[in-house]
Amino acid sequence: MKGMAKVCAISCKEYSVFCEKQGVKETPTVMIYPPNPVPAFKIDGKLEGKAVFNKLAKFMPDQTERITKDNLDKFLTTEVTKPKALLFSNKKSVPLIWKALSSETVFKRTVKFGIVTEDQTDIVQRYKVKKFPTVIIQQGAKGEKKDTYTGELKFLPLKDWVNLHSESGMGDKVSSAGGAKEESVEEAKPWLVQEVPELTAKSHQDVCFKGEGLCVIFLKDGEASPAEIEMLTGLSKKYTSQLSDRGAKMKWSLGMSSSISAAFEAFLTVVFLARMWMNLAIESAYKELFAPAQLPSAAVFNPHKRLRFTLLDHGEEGEVKGDEQGITKLLDKVLGGDARFTMVKGQKLPAWAQREAAKKAEL
């Protein structure tokens, strides 16, 4: 319990007034003082170490968030000023040490703690965790900084390690430019940490339009399957590797009906969607813009200066599919300078679907 709870001793012979106020009438007596508002109480029965330990552990506050594939990206991208500490565990309950760290006076305000259980295989594979327990801290708006704990799994060494990643004075508010006022905790941006982010009204600026290069959009009338995401991720790594030797910057992104970023020179940007999809059934205006001959398909979009795009040519009889082979053919065509781009009518993007309004209407 060292560092996790304050364990003190007092002489009732020397401090009789205090003991009387606490209702202590005989010694030895062990009193437990839980966090407010739980009142103090006396331990009954045999005064054994295990019994005292169990009572203390029962009242240990827990600020840990249970992480699943559905809330991981939100967890990582809210309150971006705070490091995110993840415990990968083969236990169902939160270990006492992790509870204590999450509720530590400074950490409960400066660090977010999560626990990932072994059965969350998608997350375990994403972080390439091979043994349990494993502790990883992730930082940055895009979760670009990761550090794995290699020390002794005890409270004080872990506390020192977490403290290295915790910035003094960090809280639940972030200052605006110039520090004139404080703003509320920022909205989650899960697409920033997804290998295959969805292009939506909220994400398109971060995913595409703020960057340089061209955008490759995977077009589909529905959600992309895990196999499709894996295929697109593999393609991004393949082209990134090929272009790195030529000094070209390549970014991969996937979208069922949206646009991506790029300067049509030596840069190719490809961004993939993961869990949050922008499918053509929802983004009907983009389905009308691209008008693919079949789905799934793909488009390379240039959102800079003159808005233009080129589509995957499916062939006269639809023999070219929107798969790895077909998308590879499209990208090679673009890189070779042989693609014909179509100008966006009126040089104005179609309207994005208002999904929040649709959800409210359903309710």
Rank of each mutant, 00 (worst) to 15 (best):
W252V: 15
K305D: 12
E288F: 05
F264E: 07
L331G: 03
F309C: 02
L330W: 15
P226T: 13
E319I: 01
G336E: 05
K348P: 02
G255W: 10
P350Q: 10
L331W: 04
L295S: 04
F272W: 05
S258H: 10
R340G: 00
R275N: 08
K345Y: 10
W277C: 11
M278C: 11
L273P: 13
R355D: 10
Q347L: 07
L268Y: 10
K287R: 11
E228I: 01
L335K: 08
R355L: 11
G346Q: 09
I327D: 07
R306A: 09
G234E: 09
L235R: 00
V320M: 09
P292Q: 02
K321G: 03
D338F: 11
W277Y: 14
L349D: 02
P303A: 03
D245I: 03
A274D: 15
H314V: 01
R306H: 14
N279S: 07
D221M: 06
K329Q: 15
K249C: 01
K238I: 00
S259Q: 09
S236N: 08
T233F: 04
E265M: 06
E228L: 02
W352Y: 11
T240N: 09
M276S: 14
S241H: 08
A281V: 04
K251V: 08
A281S: 11
K251C: 05
A357K: 13
A357G: 07
N302C: 15
L232E: 03
A274Y: 06
K348H: 14
P350V: 00
R306S: 13
A285F: 13
A224G: 10
L307F: 15
L243V: 00
M231T: 07
P296Y: 01
A248F: 06
G322N: 12
S258C: 06
A263R: 12
K251Y: 03
E356R: 15
S284N: 06
W277A: 07
I229V: 14
F218E: 04
F301E: 08
M276H: 15
M231D: 05
M343V: 09
F309M: 07
R340M: 04
S261A: 08
S261W: 15
A351F: 12
G318D: 03
K345T: 00
C215D: 08
